[in-house]
Nucleic acid binder design. Structure first.
Lengths: 351, 351
DNA sequence: CTGAAAGCGCTTACAG
DNA sequence: CTGAAAGCGCTTACAG
């Protein structure tokens, strides 16, 4: 069924003045009634709300913003929202943001720092009340000075939250999953199960998160008396299924292999699982595998993957709360880092 | 290293007036220089741009909007951005939108129609230039009249694009993947390979997209002389991995089973693959499997899944183009439906 | 309880 | 080439 329009033209939006005029009162009174601030006689109130209803009137947020000096809009930059990790944090963030009256502009930087800069400055033009940045330059180990500086300058002007390991170098407030705890939980668990020879795969030293996990696992291995090694594969997109698959194939060709393969994330872990099964070996009986991030594919496999859950709901909430604190205080603190404690989820890819 | 702030307070944003005052000219001239419209002497131009540079000045978009009457902002509602299908279309859409100067507000409705209504009205308040809606009520077979009406009213006021099968009932412009063609390509291919007994799993008649695929496959089966059946499982979240897995288990218990299982999407297909392999059967030798949507997990499995690719890049672009057309024309057409032709991707889950 | 007026930051005919 | 002025739609002291 096709619904025909009254007219084919977009109607001009009606304003507070149109309503005032129709009733024969001032716009100020209408504004007071709608905002709920200030006195309005019951009689006028009902007449006003009748018309609001009739025209389905909504005050123009931009005009309000112009007066109020804030926009109730937040900018959120990720490399690629198709990455489930980013999507899950965003989802939780947005839930809080919109329930608090904020709209979130979601931007994809494709991991391109120049594009990131453009997006950042367009957010500044939009006068968003705050900015969240996850991944992209935040995660890069080596970074031209100007990219760091850009954020240092921006965060003086706009409340800014960076989500990534070691964001202290940007001098801004950070919220991130506590990788040290996550790796710790993982290794503690593996030790309990009697595993000793453990190998991390699928990361790269160019990226802070995987570099940091590596450092943590080395440090912990001494304490726990484990034999931890790290094997990053180059030439592939690290963090990918293929990276895990190919890394595993190489490892399987060697004379002896570790008891546990720890994928830097669940995609990598899944790649490893498939390579192991293809080789005619069993998970976890012959080789155990763990993932990280607890993304949906961790359970969509023949052997469900033990993983570390960042607790997305809490994480997203923390990001929003931290940002809102900056916004409300109208202050830029810029130093505190909030770490979100993850939880280990044991499944049957380990004994 | 911690970078200390000059001041701990957010600086007041400087305006066109501050710049004008510092040089000793009028704000009008500054505006003209920055917008590039109207004449400005070279001398003033350079002085103005020096200060723009110095203060990193960006005009307040909201003030511009208020004058211009548009916001260069688009609202985009999906049930859950963690769903890779939605994320992929959004990603492509956003690419085009932001390269054309539009910011996109991404909202998750969680499939809750009441929340959807709230989000819709908040977008209206924001005076977004256009709205895109994918999934949610758009996909529902049975829908209380008021939910349909709401969209019919909204699209008179704001350019509106609905993405879903059979959106004609909302009387608005639609952009959607051509499921008839997709199912057609799939069945044609299966026939070519000599398959005859085919079963669709993992959908539900409550959802237009799967209902429509069902209708199409029945219609085509007659033409192609195939034996097509449809087995929706209830009690599970349809469209999920579990739904595919459980459906397959039930089918495998029966005395004879089909030659091909067509999952309504790739998650369902993957569930079926795993159930088949668990039963000690081989894919595709014993049973072939196909998916739909060509999501990343289709290739992250031991047996890569033949799937139908909606061609996300083209799809997202089409959505943006259609919306932009509505915005620029300042007209509401509200009837045309653009179908995006998908492509079959053959992998080794079929012969 | 109400209205006139100023102001948020920008743009744009208009007059010079 | 430039500036004064009006206006986008709203809010909010202020005076009544």
């Amino acid at each position: 069924m096709i619904i025909s329009d009254d007219s084919n033209l977009v109607k001009r939006n009606i304003t507070i003045y149109d309503i005032a005029k129709e009733i024969g009162i001032s716009a100020a009174t209408v504004s007071r009634a709608i905002s709920g601030r200030g006195y309005v006689s019951e009689k006028n109130k009902t007449r006003i709300f009748e018309l609001v209803e009739k025209y389905n009137f909504r005050p123009n947020t931009f005009a309000q913003n112009l007066k109020a000096g804030f926009t109730k809009t937040i900018g959120y930059i990720v490399p690629h929202i198709g990455n489930e990790y980013f999507a899950k944090v965003y989802y939780e963030f947005e839930k809080w943001a919109s329930s608090h009256g904020y709209m979130t502009i979601l931007l994809n930087s494709k991991g391109d720092y120049e594009l990131e800069s453009k997006l950042l400055s367009s957010l500044k033009e939009k006068h968003v009340d705050g900015i969240v940045m996850m991944g992209g330059r935040i995660d890069a180990m080596e970074l031209p000075e100007r990219y760091i500086k850009e954020i240092q300058e921006l965060k003086q002007i706009i409340p800014f939250i960076a989500c990534g390991a070691k964001v202290e170098r940007f001098g801004c407030t950070g919220v991130y999953s506590d990788d040290e705890k996550g790796v710790g939980q993982l290794l503690d668990f593996l030790k309990t199960k009697g595993y000793k020879r453990i190998c991390f795969i699928g990361g790269g030293d160019e990226y802070y998160p995987s570099y940091y996990k590596k450092i943590c696992s080395y440090r912990l291995s001494e304490k726990l008396n484990l034999d931890v090694s790290v094997r990053w594969l180059t030439g592939y997109e690290v963090f990918s299924y293929e990276s895990g698959y190919e890394s595993m194939k190489i490892i399987l060709k060697e004379e002896s292999y570790p008891e546990v393969i720890c994928g830097i994330n669940d995609y990598v872990a899944l790649g490893a699982v498939n390579a192991i099964m293809e080789a005619g070996l069993r998970v976890p009986e012959d080789i155990a595998v763990t993932g990280y991030d607890n993304v949906s594919i961790a359970t969509m496999t023949p052997v469900q993957i033990t993983s570390v859950n960042p607790r997305y709901e809490y994480y997203g909430k923390k990001v929003f709360n931290s940002l809102q604190k900056l916004i409300l205080k109208k202050e830029v603190h810029g130093e505190s880092v909030v770490l979100v404690k993850p939880e280990l989820i044991v499944r049957n890819s380990t004994l």
